[in-house]
């Protein structure tokens, strides 16, 4: 702190005078040199302008990244749709681009993605919401400040670790309970994914619950409501748009998650809702092709960009929607 002020004070010496008068020049020691002061001022202006421009370019990188994503994905995808009609891609129910008899219907991958995401949501939403309610409405401040960082650890664990946990810990338990469970199955991947997105669900919902003004709670208490009634009739309805935003963001995360499904859910594109069987998701397919020896530049390889585009569009729509909802609850109470 002090050193900052000292530095700033040191700078005073070199500040150019706005209106140097002859008197001032005469009273100064011989050191005051107008030409030099003018040069300094020009140099400073140059530095200021360059810094401004460089910083602006840094901020622009984000726009360039988005542009890069769109161009990369669209370029390959348009070429792909030159060979495979877009209607066949979006409505076909057979996905066999790596087989001899090729078929490019993406629905089995979409089916797998949605089923895994649904399992994850069924785990993450109730547990996450109840955790958020506990932390925001019931827990004393000290307990809350202890539990929250521990839950955040769940969000920081790499997804490949969750994949290992699903395959080596959860799947064997499932197979003990339901003997017909396949080694690679949707249930195990989905359950573990649910715990991965739990902290995000809990933390966004908690923000929404805390944004509900205290007056509303106190009003309800004053009318004789129990704590449960306050939570279920006042706080949760008041935070509904924020909670909905958290749910949508959780779905978006589940759809884009890759390593858990690549490890634990298997690589068999198929339709249906049997949770104990193996299914391939869109992300797992991209990993499968990236790891294999599919030659780049062929139609088989181009499929990953078409699938990637679909994935990008799905998550983008959901992210924008949840952003809109969050903004709505912020406006409602501020």
């Amino acid at each position: 702190m002090v050193s900052q002020w000292r530095d700033a004070l040191n700078n005073v010496k070199s500040v150019p005078r706005a209106h140097p008068t002859a008197d001032a020049a005469a009273s100064e020691p011989a050191g005051l040199d107008f030409a030099r002061s003018r040069r300094d001022s020009l140099r400073r202006k140059f530095v200021e302008r360059s810094v401004h421009a460089v910083l602006f370019l840094c901020a622009l990188i984000s726009v360039l990244t988005t542009t890069g994503i769109v161009i990369t994905l669209l370029g390959e995808t348009i070429q792909f749709f030159g060979e495979v009609p877009i209607v066949d891609f979006l409505t076909g129910t057979r996905w066999t681009p790596l087989f001899a008899s090729k078929s490019f219907g993406v629905l089995p991958l979409v089916n797998g993605t949605i089923v895994v995401a649904l399992v994850a949501i069924v785990v993450a939403v109730p547990i996450g919401l109840l955790t958020a309610i506990f932390l925001s409405e019931f827990a004393p401040a000290r307990l809350r400040s202890m539990v929250k960082p521990v839950l955040e650890v769940l969000a920081g664990i790499p997804t490949v670790v969750y994949g290992y946990f699903a395959l080596q810990f959860v799947t064997p338990i499932l197979r003990d309970i339901f003997p017909q469970t396949q080694i690679f199955n949707v249930a195990s991947a989905g359950i573990v994914m649910g715990f991965m997105i739990l902290p995000m669900m809990a933390s966004i919902s908690e923000d929404a619950l805390r944004a509900v003004p205290r007056d509303l709670r106190e009003g309800a208490f004053a009318l004789g409501a129990t704590r449960f009634e306050v939570v279920s009739r006042v706080v949760v309805p008041g935070a509904l748009s924020g909670i909905l935003a958290a749910v949508i963001l959780s779905i978006s995360r589940a759809i884009g998650e890759t390593m858990i499904v690549a490890i634990a859910a298997g690589l068999q594109p198929q339709m249906g809702f049997d949770l104990l069987r193996s299914m391939e998701t869109m992300t797992a397919y991209i990993v499968q092709v990236s790891l294999g020896d599919t030659p780049q530049g062929g139609i088989e390889f181009r499929t990953i960009f078409a699938v990637g585009t679909l994935l990008f569009v799905m998550t983008l729509v959901m992210n924008l929607l949840s952003d809109l909802l969050v903004r709505r609850y912020r406006e409602a109470y501020e």
């Binding site: 994503i69 963001l249 992300t283 991209i286 990637g308 998550t315 992210n319």
Partner: peptide, 15 residues
């Protein structure tokens, strides 16, 4: 920037 934070990591891989 807000939207980029929500793009699935595998899409960055394709980029």
């Amino acid at each position: 920037i807000a939207n980029l934070a929500g793009v699935p990591s595998i899409v960055y891989g394709l980029l």
